[in-house]
Design a binder for these strands. Structure first.
Lengths: 195, 195
DNA sequence: TTTTCTTGATTGATGAATCAATTAAAAATA
DNA sequence: TATTTTTAATTGATTCATCAATCAAGAAAA
């Protein structure tokens, strides 16, 4: 049996702790000690495994993105057209994604991306992937240009609902968010739900 | 003639400098020296007029909000119904509002609002005002519930287009943003443009 | 002269990053 | 198996830089 070292465990624990810390403060302005403390280790160890704070934060964003990506792939498998679009929307507002910590992290990373090229690239790649996904799903339902435009609208709505959610308190209301976006899609499709 | 002191001049210069600094860094993580330097004064003077850094930042956000509010009032005067809605949209993407510095500032302040209750309140008040404005304009065109929902959609789209803009480079493309939001409104109105 | 305006220098706190030293675990050797 | 050696894991203490905030004192204006 392959006995594995501490490294992956610690890395994972630190990333989880980072998400929690960021979620609670609502910004990336958290100290290494804070994060390390939450993970039950010393700040020095966090540096040992990640190097600079920036690297830990980068890994954290990548982790969030990877999870979302996985969820998306799973949800989208075996469905096409409108069902596919709806699945994409659903994942973005799923219980796992649309919760305060993750929302806060998204926002904070968006801001950080203004400063940090690597982060900016990361977010851009994600945005492009989402766009392609949406266009691919919409393609059979709409002419190309319309599909592109609709995808843009959906993406903007999702981001907008995320950012606006950050101002409210209480638990997020995913249902009404989903409804809003789906209504948009329905309107765009203009009755022709032939898929 | 009433000779006025330096205070208002300095305050204004410092706020402008803060906007520029925030816009360039893309975050509120700017030093007092940086801001003061841009305004052509010492950091100590900035403290003299504003007290804490937090107060300067708060004043900066309030200034941005106030300008937007003024623009909005001006644009909205003497128009009602659809024209009013379109005016509101237009202002949000006007040359004065929809530019990199302001966009970056909005984003950054949204994040900061997670931590700072006063800022949160400020942004909330603005959000509510925008909402009422939109609902008021939509009321004659749609049933109440629909108007509410449409207003939410418009607001989310605007915020979403702002945040997404932050990832792109080059000058903002206001025209296509406006078009996207207006299309949404048109769809929501579903043909009945009886105002 | 008194008040307003302004700054350089200083203080104090914070926090990232490093390092030397310690313990625990694994591997190698006898 | 027992013993030594090597490697991995871990941290407390320290260093170093950055900045907000203060203050005493100087220049300008009233």
């Amino acid at each position: 049996m392959p006995k594995i070292g501490m490294e992956p465990l610690r890395r994972r624990a630190l990333i989880d702790a980072a998400i929690r810390a960021i979620g609670e403060r609502g910004s990336l302005d958290v100290t290494m000690s804070e994060i390390a403390g939450r993970a039950g280790v010393s700040a020095a160890l966090a540096h040992h495994y990640f190097g600079a704070k920036e690297d830990l934060l980068f890994a954290t964003m990548r982790h969030i993105l990877a999870e979302l990506g996985r969820d998306l792939r799973d949800a989208v498998a075996e469905c096409a057209g409108l069902a596919r679009v709806r699945a994409i929307i659903a994942v973005n507002f799923s219980q796992k994604q649309f919760r305060p910590e993750i929302i806060a992290a998204w926002l904070a990373f968006y801001v950080e991306a203004q400063r940090t090229p690597a982060l900016r690239r990361l977010l851009r790649v994600y945005a492009r992937r989402l766009h392609s996904n949406l266009v691919f799903a919409l393609e059979p339902l709409l002419p190309r240009t319309e599909a592109e435009r609709t995808a843009e609208g959906i993406a903007a709505l999702i981001d907008g609902l995320y950012i606006r959610r950050a101002l409210k308190d209480g638990p997020p209301d995913a249902a009404s968010a989903v409804a809003l976006v789906e209504d948009y899609v329905t309107l765009r499709l203009g009755g022709r739900h032939d898929a």
